[in-house]
Design a protein around this nucleic acid. Structure first.
Lengths: 226, 226
DNA sequence: GCTTAATGTAAAAGCTATTTACATGAGCTG
DNA sequence: CAGCTCATGTAAATAGCTTTTACATTAAGC
């Protein structure tokens, strides 16, 4: 928990001072506890110590609040992915592996954000900012795909956009199906991280993008003479 | 729709006659209209023409009803996948392509089922039947993966379970991110079906499973006609 | 026909969502 | 500082959903 400074809930009078912020945090906490469905506007208000009507000064309705959560989520998601990708250093394959792990790590560490972003049924069109934030997050995947595709000779080079969408679908599929420790989903013969790494490696081999690293690693099992 | 006989809603007296069935259908209709969240127990009851308390004679709560919907969904899903797979005839690759299209087709044609099955947050553990139905559906993917893996020489043969999980993740990822005509999600340079087909073909090539058909291989379907 | 269990109703208590009229106080202006 | 104004919060009221409890109705078997 980060009870640092800007959510002082104790010394307040008639006005909260930072209710919008407090509501977003309350929503996060409640979603994390009881799923995206099991969170109510009223309970968020109670959590922030205000009357049930107060939130309406800041959000038109529940969806608007969820959209705010999703917006913040996309921003943090983009930051996490960009940090992991790190412009493809020291090499594309190492960075791509970090990227995949960061994707799964985010879904696991921030299930509330991930739910709001992908599973709560909030249309991206609800606000331009939300779409832009989502686009920025995807742009990281897109950039990685570009750099990846650039390693292959032009004649056989696959379209980077398609590769980015494929990587996104693989990551999201694994995160969504197996990613959270729901204790409610299917048992796996390996961790989600290993599963995704293997999938991406096979996919890259299929693209004709060969891993150039001298490192044997987990990829050695999926490698073949070209 | 199958408005054949056993849902006569008009001529009924005190007892409905088939309320459980009617509630499941009402839930499907409502979920399809307003998403998995925008469906209430009470409205399902109203839809079936009974009092708000009546559903409690058949379902402990909302989740139990959703689980019934999901159960039926998994059964239909399994049937659709099995029909598409058709034991891998006339050849594995043709059948696999049908399988992928059937997966996406189901998600698009039956969004209510798909939501209940994968996005409503119903734990599979809620009932043994639900898990078994889910397992049977996955078994179709698993069988396809087995047959696929059997086409490669044993020394390099990938684990079929892993391949099945990968195919599932790709399909679900694409269905979940781009599959429904939400008009709310991202614009694509190609249809979900083409996207999935291309992804699977690249993946298969990476596995070392070559498509033996005379249609030109993966690059042919990844082409961009624009 | 009578009994019993299954199935449905009515009513009530306690939620949440949302609106409306009103209260408070922070910040600006002179 | 005085006074104005607007953003922010409250109270109260309406309406709907959830769930339980006591009761009503009917189908089915003996």
């Amino acid at each position: 928990m980060s009870w640092s400074k800007d959510d002082r809930e104790s010394p307040r009078g008639y006005h909260h001072g930072n209710l919008k912020e407090a509501l977003v945090r309350a929503a996060l906490e409640l979603i994390a506890q009881k799923g995206p469905a099991g969170f109510t506007f009223a309970e968020a208000a109670r959590w922030a110590g205000v009357s049930p009507a107060a939130p309406y000064r800041h959000f038109r309705d529940r969806d608007q609040l969820l959209a705010s959560v999703a917006l913040r989520g996309f921003n943090q998601f983009e930051a996490a992915l960009a940090r992991a990708w790190d412009d493809g250093l020291p090499d594309v394959f190492t960075a791509l592996d970090r990227l995949g792990k960061a994707y799964l790590g985010f879904a696991r560490a921030e299930p509330a954000y991930y739910s709001a972003m992908f599973e709560a049924g909030i249309p991206l069109a609800i606000s331009p900012e939300l779409r832009e934030a989502s686009d920025r997050a995807f742009a990281v995947l897109r950039a990685a795909a570009e750099k990846l595709c650039a390693t292959t000779p032009a004649p056989n080079r696959p379209p980077a956009l398609m590769v980015a969408l494929h990587i996104w679908a693989m990551s999201h599929g694994i995160a969504s199906l197996f990613g959270r420790g729901d204790a409610a989903r299917r048992a796996l013969p390996m961790s989600p991280e290993e599963l995704l790494e293997a999938e991406v490696l096979v996919y890259l081999r299929g693209l004709g993008v060969a891993e150039a690293k001298p490192n044997g690693g987990p990829s050695a099992s999926a490698r073949n003479p070209n």
